[in-house]
Amino acid sequence: MQLAVRHETHYDYDTPLAYSAQRLHLWPVDFASQRVLSWSITAPGFDNALSYSDGFGNRVHMITFGNITGPVSIVAKGIVDVTDAAGLVRGLSCAAPEAVFLRQTKPTMANSALRSLGEKQFANRGVLDGLHALMAEIHAKVAYELGSTHAHTTAAEAFADGRGVCQDHAHIFIAACRSAGIPARYVTGYLVTGQGASSTAAHAWAEALVPDLGWVGFDPANAKCPTDNYVRVAAGLDAAGVAPIRGSRRGGDAERMRVEVRVEIAQQ
């Protein structure tokens, strides 16, 4: 299936922006079940961007710009052809050793409740069956509720509250996996819900390493493995590590950010 994506991040400031340096995780890469047919990024300074592949296999761009008095927009858009592989991720280069994905970060640090969650799902089950059970359990216990958490909410906090968004579902899944000794990583991308439908937000899920099978995606927010309705953009240890746009600036007081995402099934 071919999916058309447009992701715009718009910034307004009360004072001129003197200088800005930003890291972009906005460019999807090819692997066995995903092929980028066309993609572009429009942003100040992008013509001189530093582009590289990081240790997790992500395509990253570093941009710098300054002396801007008006608003700033960063737009990523393109068309991606995706095949349903039942969540299996093959043919994706990743230089980082698998053990790196056992490292707990602040958002994914497991407390006793999350360790118990993992232990319960993997008891008397194989890894793959346990991962499916874990995904279903998180979906059942943590309600999807916009505005119930914020960018710095940890997995432990969201699980205790029983509410969150896709970022929280993914962090909880990762925390439970890593506490059980299963490498897991955080994934950003896009999701469209079906034929004739469109999505208006970016999405996040997780991938776990299954022995003798490889990396497999799990989306606890929707209780399913990624299909051809998903576009995978970047992966890392947690949400902060693969934020679509992250950096620093001088000037540009009282920053206001607005994000608009549209994902549709492309005309074929």
Results as ranks from 00 to 15, higher is better:
residue 123 A to Q: 02
residue 123 A to Y: 00
residue 124 N to C: 08
residue 124 N to E: 09
residue 124 N to K: 12
residue 125 R to S: 13
residue 125 R to T: 15
residue 125 R to G: 14
residue 126 G to V: 10
residue 126 G to N: 13
residue 126 G to S: 12
residue 126 G to W: 15
residue 127 V to T: 04
residue 128 L to F: 08
residue 130 G to K: 02
residue 131 L to D: 07
residue 131 L to S: 09
residue 132 H to E: 05
residue 132 H to Y: 07
residue 132 H to C: 07
residue 133 A to T: 09
residue 133 A to Q: 08
residue 134 L to P: 03
residue 134 L to E: 05
residue 135 M to Y: 08
residue 136 A to Y: 15
residue 138 I to E: 00
residue 138 I to Y: 03
residue 138 I to S: 00
residue 139 H to P: 05
residue 141 K to M: 15
residue 141 K to L: 14
residue 141 K to C: 11
residue 142 V to A: 10
residue 142 V to H: 06
residue 142 V to L: 03
residue 144 Y to W: 10
residue 144 Y to V: 15
residue 145 E to C: 14
residue 147 G to E: 11
residue 147 G to W: 14
residue 147 G to C: 10
residue 147 G to M: 09
residue 148 S to D: 10
residue 148 S to H: 12
residue 148 S to R: 12
residue 149 T to N: 02
residue 151 A to Y: 01
residue 153 T to W: 12
residue 153 T to A: 00
residue 153 T to I: 04
residue 153 T to G: 01
residue 153 T to K: 12
residue 153 T to R: 09
residue 155 A to F: 05
residue 155 A to S: 08
residue 155 A to Q: 04
residue 156 A to E: 06
residue 157 E to L: 15
residue 158 A to I: 07
residue 158 A to E: 08
residue 158 A to N: 08
residue 158 A to Q: 05
residue 159 F to T: 00
residue 159 F to A: 01
residue 160 A to I: 03
residue 162 G to K: 14
residue 164 G to A: 08
residue 164 G to N: 05
residue 166 C to D: 01
residue 166 C to R: 02
residue 166 C to E: 00
residue 169 H to V: 03
residue 169 H to T: 05
residue 171 H to V: 00
residue 171 H to P: 00
residue 173 F to T: 01
residue 173 F to D: 01
residue 173 F to H: 01
residue 174 I to S: 08
residue 174 I to G: 07
residue 175 A to H: 15
residue 175 A to W: 14
